[in-house]
Design a protein around this nucleic acid. Structure first.
Lengths: 218, 218, 218, 218
DNA sequence: AATGAATGAGGGTTCATTCAT
DNA sequence: TATGAATGAACCCTCATTCAT
């Protein structure tokens, strides 16, 4: 088309490679921990050599940061989508979780939320904690909304959210893409269970009538 | 009293020291990850030097193994106690979780739940996985029982248990002994939320009438 | 003698080892430059392994800093001794140089004055530059004194001192302990030549009558 | 004019670029040492990329060699010019130094004078040492001549020359083109001081009457 | 004539582990 | 029972160098 085509293509290729590196690193960090991961293995799985990584990233720490940022982005994105869909607090929280779990299992994006102390430098850590706190506050807000609306059982929203996040963050420990459950189905089941854990009225079946059927058919 | 008294005392002291080392190591592994933890810090926090550790433990890996074993033991113990208490599947599962969470937050034992791959050698890993699978099977059995009894909503018990374990294993990431909630209270709240996530009937309040009050009073 | 003897002995041994490391490193830095020196070689020449160095020093940079500090100390010490000896500016400067050169060639202490940019971190660099500037100012003061006394030819004392320091700092590039000249003799010859370069009156022979003879006898 | 003009021009441009690279490299080697200099910075300061350097030079080592050769060439050239000017040994040596210092400060050529061992390969090193020895021998010859003529004080010519070379080689460590002294003036002052350091008779003022004035006027 | 991308070699540093005392 | 000292292995990271384009 134009003279700039190849340039753009090159930049895009580079961006994709960077993305692949981050994804692979996230996988490794998740499995073996930050300090237990060595960049040689990450590189090898990508079919390149370790120094080649340094063409795309500054640091091992920068890599971790990128993973965390992808995770936060995914989480925030899930919230934004759910906000857009609207509905009661229970529906909104359910949508958040569905989006999040689907994103987690689909792209394996942002699977790293396990924070090893001492892995990030103080500056990055502060920034990340701020973002994470924002996210958690949002979730707590939804839980509070639900209690106000009477759809959620009275509870300590802080702890309730921790329970939910634990369940969700743990997914990357046991999820296998080759498993029998599709990511869609998984997201439904997990969010249903977690919403039901907070729901005041009769169980969540009313909320997800179409899914209750498949759930019973498991 | 007898010549063997001092010997026994010495052995007991040694055992206590060993226990202290394992607890401290668990704390560190939990915070910084296995590979992110260095024995110098562990030793320093105990007021001894690194080589002194080797008088009580064979290996860094043995230390990790001991942590894991304590965790499994705690988990199994929770199951045994709940079995002893009896009741319906929902009550039994609730008791398991209550015991487990209380143990977790009381001693901070067993907080490290096989988070990093590649930390344990293959032999230890196999043994540990077998124990863990036994434990998970037990939980799944209870969930199946609950479905059969009609107290639990129909679900995939494998995923349901993963969700519960995730929520519970995550506790060590956010629990602070200095926090406002006592370990007893915390155990109640968490297990209530998780049981409710599976319960078929009206919400779990009926199961824990006395606690529902305090919960509303938060 | 007392129970603390062995402890003291150990500490002294450690201090000596540290000193030996610094001396050896100074030698290497001087020859091959800071970045051209690798710690493996330094360790090997000392008959130890590289990690053993880290028992005595924090860093390669700390090692360089220690070398620089030894050099500054030697230089300052030379000034202090010369001050104590008194005399005219020419005699004082001569004594400074004699002491300095002798120290340089005797212990090979503090031979590193060649500052590669980018070797020291900013904080250390600042501190060192301040010390070095103090030293140079002192020398310039002596040169100014000499001009005021009329024993030194009028000149730009800044440049005059640079010339002297260049000549002296260069010694480590060509000095070989096995060479024909003793360190005493060398110190005399070099300082005589440098003092003569500034002297106003008839050549320095008058100042160093006893040495003029040996000089002619070379 | 002819078809070959552009070719010539191109070759000349290439030669100039090569020269610029060598000058920039000399500057860097001088400041940061050979091993402390990385070609990325050199390239960046020239506004090109690192691989582009390899179009003009074979090697990092070749770059260093070129710097050294420029230095030797400058030194030899200074000797040749002084020989051509004639005069007594003191005048000749003074002229050598003046030419050399002026060249050094004017182009900043040849400031790197074999400071780091282990930077050049054995073959290049041998060749360079031979040239350097020739040069030093020449200077020693002049010093011996001066002693024979009675214009220089009796001394060890080897050491005397080392002192002079040290003072001169050190210049690049402190010379700043933006400083208050012009290169001409500097050359006069330095060579005067160094010649005076060897002179037998009354101080060198007689040799440089016109400069003595400016010197006093500093 | 020049560049983006990649690599191999090498060096600094950490750390689990051992051993003499 | 505990420590100072030392080591080997491993890992992160840099950089000179190359090559396809």
């Amino acid at each position: 088309m134009s003279w700039k085509e190849p340039l753009k293509a090159r930049q895009q290729i580079a961006a994709e490679k960077r993305g692949a590196i981050i994804r692979e690193a996230a996988r490794a960090f998740n499995r073996r921990g930050y300090h237990g991961t060595n960049l040689d293995e990450v590189a090898e799985r990508l079919g390149i050599t370790k120094p080649a990584l340094y063409y795309y990233i500054k640091d091992k720490e920068a890599l971790l940061l990128a993973c965390h940022e992808a995770a936060i982005e995914l989480a925030m994105d899930a919230v934004a989508r759910a906000d857009h869909q609207g509905g009661g607090a229970d529906e909104r929280l359910g949508n958040v979780l569905r989006h999040y779990v689907r994103g987690l299992t689909d792209d394996l994006r942002g699977s790293v939320v396990l924070m090893e102390e001492g892995a990030l430098g103080p500056a990055n850590l502060r920034r990340l904690k701020r973002q994470r706190d924002t996210y958690e506050s949002t979730l707590r807000g939804i839980v509070r909304d639900g209690m106000a609306e009477g759809v959620f059982v009275p509870c300590d929203e802080k702890i309730a959210v921790f329970v939910i996040l634990g369940a969700v963050n743990w997914i990357s420990k046991w999820y296998a893409a080759e498993g029998p459950r599709g990511s869609e189905e998984l997201a439904e089941m997990i969010s249903a269970q977690l919403i039901r854990g907070l729901s005041a009225g009769p169980t969540g079946r009313a909320l997800l009538p179409e899914f209750a059927l498949t759930s019973e058919a498991v």
